[in-house]
């Protein structure tokens, strides 16, 4: 499992539940260390163990935990860089949805050894979409549900999301666009640069 994914879990837990919670989970999972390095590759088993320990510690189902992780990734101030990268996907939420088809390729452009499952958006009507998340990374569709929800806020769109189960190996998320310009949304300045 890529260190960036493990690091994302660590960062989410520390920012949301505190470092003590993270340390307890790493001990319960018997990782033997308490800090994942973003650019190293880890045995997938370690990620599974730490996730199980976290869900037990927080007493929450894994899908809920991962959905919150997805929301954190694109909405927390710590993660502004990632939000910006997602906003490059398009000027509107619908454009953003369509850009998800390229997400795994875009990710590989930036970090060549980070392989995320393919996503495929199917448009059933201008207000109804289904996102197919390919297999390969357990829980990915839960994370994506959180990402889709937070990005809708970011664009100021009102959406209803639901998990539609699996369709030939792929997990399906249905997206109903209630209103594309529901709220102001957050500003995205193409040329903004960190000082």
């Amino acid at each position: 499992m890529h260190g960036l994914i493990n690091r994302a879990i660590q960062s989410f837990v520390c920012a949301t539940y505190g470092r003590q919670c993270w340390l307890r989970a790493t001990q319960a999972a018997a990782l033997g260390f308490d800090e994942f390095e973003a650019m190293l590759i880890y045995d997938a088993d370690l990620s599974t163990r730490v996730l199980e320990a976290l869900c037990a510690e927080l007493n929450r189902p894994r899908s809920e935990f991962l959905e919150d992780l997805g929301t954190y990734l694109v909405s927390h101030p710590n993660m502004e860089d990632l939000r910006r990268l997602m906003r490059f996907g398009g000027v509107t939420y619908v454009e953003f949805l369509h850009s998800l088809d390229d997400l795994s390729d875009r990710v590989r452009l930036a970090v060549s050894d980070l392989k995320l499952p393919d996503l495929e958006l199917q448009e059933h009507s201008p207000a109804e979409y289904r996102l197919h998340c390919s297999a390969g990374l357990p829980g990915y569709s839960s994370v994506m549900t959180g990402v889709l929800r937070a990005m809708a806020d970011d664009y100021g769109s009102l959406v209803i999301l639901s998990n539609e189960g699996r369709q030939s190996e792929a997990a399906v998320i249905s997206i109903t666009l209630v209103e594309s310009a529901f709220a102001e949304g957050r500003h995205f300045d193409l040329g903004a640069r960190k000082s």
């Binding site: 960036l4 690091r7 390095e37 973003a38 650019m39 190293l40 860089d81 990632l82 910006r84 990268l85 490059f88 875009r106 452009l109 930036a110 970090v111």
Partner: peptide, 16 residues
């Protein structure tokens, strides 16, 4: 996009 993605990735590498 690439410039930003790369600088984010570089930062992660640099801190390592």
């Amino acid at each position: 996009y690439l410039v930003e993605a790369n600088s984010a990735a570089m930062e992660a590498s640099r801190s390592l």
